[in-house]
Nucleic acid binder design. Sequence first.
DNA 1: CCATTGTTTGAATCCGATCTCAAAGAAGTA
DNA 2: TACTTCTTTGAGATCGGATTCAAACAATGG
Lengths: 204, 204
Amino acid sequence: MGNKPGRPKNQTARREALVDAAGRAIAERGLEGLRIKDIAAEAGMSAGSVLYYYPEMGELVLEVHRGAVERYLAARQGAVDGATGAAARLRALVGSGLPGGSGDAVHGLLFELHRRADRSSGHATLMASLFAREVALYATVLEVGAAVGEFTLTEPVADVARNLVALEDGYGLHIVSRNAELTPDVARRLLLGYARTVTGCPVL
Amino acid sequence: MGNKPGRPKNQTARREALVDAAGRAIAERGLEGLRIKDIAAEAGMSAGSVLYYYPEMGELVLEVHRGAVERYLAARQGAVDGATGAAARLRALVGSGLPGGSGDAVHGLLFELHRRADRSSGHATLMASLFAREVALYATVLEVGAAVGEFTLTEPVADVARNLVALEDGYGLHIVSRNAELTPDVARRLLLGYARTVTGCPVL
DNA sequence: CCATTGTTTGAATCCGATCTCAAAGAAGTA
DNA sequence: TACTTCTTTGAGATCGGATTCAAACAATGG
C-alpha cells in the first residue's frame, strides 16, 4: 500500500536546473538561436535529458518566462520596500524598471521572451500579467504618496501608473536595442520628469 | 568601348519584388519562421532566385526594415500634413503612431524587425533613426503649436516629444502582444491625456 | 542569326538539429 | 543481494532547410 517506488523523483530540482540553463542560453544566443545542445551543455547534461524532462521545447521556454517575471517583480518589490518616503519609493521603482544598459541580462531576457507574445497565448498572458502587476506597484506608491500629502495628483492614479510603465517599456526597448541617444540616465531623467509634473512633487 | 553587355539588368525591380515578398512573409510567419522557400513562393519565383539576388539573407531582411521605416514615416508625415491646426495635427500624429489592433501589419512588422537591433547593428541604427525622426515629427508639431499659442509647454519640447514616442512604443508593444486591457482606444486616451497635461491644451 | 552575358530553375547535395531508442547506470525496496 | 523503477546517455535515424550547380532560357549587340 504505502509502497514507495524504486528511485526517488527529484524531477523538480532537475527541471529547475534546466529552466535556469535555458534562461542563460536564451540571454546569450537569443530565442532564435536556442538549441537543445546548448541548453544541455549549459546545464551540464546530455541533449537526451533535456528531451526527457521537456519533450516540448515551448514548455521549457514558457517556464523560463514565468521564472523571469516572478524574479523581476520580486526585485522591484524589494526595491520599493528598501526605500523610505513616497518620493524615494517612486525613484526606487523607476530605477528598478529600466535596464542598466544594452547588456542588462534581466531586461534583455524579458524583452526576448515578450517577443513570443504575439504568437503564443501563454507568453501573452504572462506579459499582460507583468504589465498589470507593475502598474499595481506604481499605483500603490502613488496612492500612498497622495494620502500622505507628498504627491498631488491631477490625473487618475490608474492612468499615471500605466503611463509610467509604458514609458519604462518604451525606453527600455530602446536601451536594450543600443540606441546611443537613450542612455539609462537620460531615460530615468525623462521618466522622473513626467513623474514630477504629474505628482507636483519637486524633489523627484 | 561603349559596349552594353548582353541582357539588361533590371535587378532593381526584381529586388524590390523580393523585399516586398519578404516583408509579407515576415509579417505572416515572423522572423523566426522566415524560410527562403516562403519568400520565393510569395514572390512567385524559385528558391534559387532568392539566393541569386540575396546570397546573404540578413541583407534582404535589412532592406525590408529600411523600406518599412521609410513607408511608416511617410505615412505619419502624411497624417500630420492632412490635418489643420496644432491640436488636430497632434491628434493625427498620435493616431498614426499606435497599432490599430493586435493584427496591425505595419506595427507588427516593425516590432518584429526591431527585435534584431540587439544583435545586428544595422537594425539598431535603423531603429534609432526611426526614433529620432519620430521625435522630430512631434517636436515640430509641438513647437509650431507653442508658437501659435495653442500649446503652453512647461517642459522642454525635446523631452515631451521623446516621452510621446516612448509611450507609443510602450503601448504599441502591448497592443501587438494582445494585452486585452490595452486596446488602441485606451492607449490613445492615455497618450492624449499626457499630451493635454503637458501642453495645457484642453481640446486634445 | 550568332555570340555573349544575365537570369531562372530544380535536382542533388550538404548540413545541422531534433528525435528515437536500446542499453547502461543509479537509487531505492524487499 | 535481487528486483524494480527512474534516469541518463549517445549513437543512429530522420527531418527540414540552405546551398550548389549544371543546364535551360532570355534579351540584347553585332
